[in-house]
Write a protein that binds this DNA or RNA. Sequence first.
DNA 1: AAAAACATGCAACTTAAGTGCATTATTTCC
DNA 2: GGAAATAATGCACTTAAGTTGCATGTTTTT
Lengths: 138, 138
Amino acid sequence: MDKIERLLRQHHIRPTAIRLLMYKFLHEKNVAVTLNDIESGFDKSERTTLYRTIKTFEKNGLVHQIDDGTGVAKYALDEPENQKGNSQDLHLHFHCTSCNETVCLTDHKIPHISLPKGFVTQDMNLVLKGTCDKCNRK
Amino acid sequence: MDKIERLLRQHHIRPTAIRLLMYKFLHEKNVAVTLNDIESGFDKSERTTLYRTIKTFEKNGLVHQIDDGTGVAKYALDEPENQKGNSQDLHLHFHCTSCNETVCLTDHKIPHISLPKGFVTQDMNLVLKGTCDKCNRK
DNA sequence: AAAAACATGCAACTTAAGTGCATTATTTCC
DNA sequence: GGAAATAATGCACTTAAGTTGCATGTTTTT
């Protein structure tokens, strides 16, 4: 409890009730969640607040937004190892078209790609799509 | 003119006036366009029609949709060499955060990526973000 | 030329994202 | 500790993109 509070403070986020709850919520999930997912998990609070909360988390480097091609933004906690270094976490994401879940594959880094002359890369986004381990076992 | 008509027919698309115009429009551009871009280029026609036209093109393998992270779907013509083979065109896209243009880098293929056991990949999406050659020259 | 199939245009709906502003809670500073 | 300042929350509303239903118009088929 104290631990989460300290973590939020480290990121310059005031640890309000909702924020603590949302952090726990995100922490329990091991998949990326949409704002709707979050909303469903919080009967208490209101969409706008949850929206602004996740945006605050994002701005302060606690979560990253994932664009998996479904057209809806998803969010996942930054892993601690990525939080330390200020290097951007260029891990890839896997989107399962069967269960619609998206997971971070944090230990799969995106390979370096050489571009035509004049292009400067600042960021990248790689999403693999297919069926995940859970769905393939069924 | 006839050439485009034949091309559409080859893709089982009836060559109506709007479709011919849209094909030309897409062909002239060398960047991916949004539905809004198309709309702006066609005072004549209506959003719904343009929407359905581009979707018809997509369904019949004439264009591919690109999700560059801006939250708006973009479309670009499939290159002829990709049309022949039925292998999915796994080229990558570059999105310029300065001019907001997105281009297909068709000769840059996405490298193979090995996944954890149980994951089966069917498709993938790689978008690099940064500044393009034109913007860097300015 | 009539029937069938398809394309187009208009209106309306859905969903997600985002903003303005009043109210409530938390810090800061004396 | 209490007042002022700052920030968080909740509600209503707006925007933007995508999408569908249906009536009308056009093309194809026979």
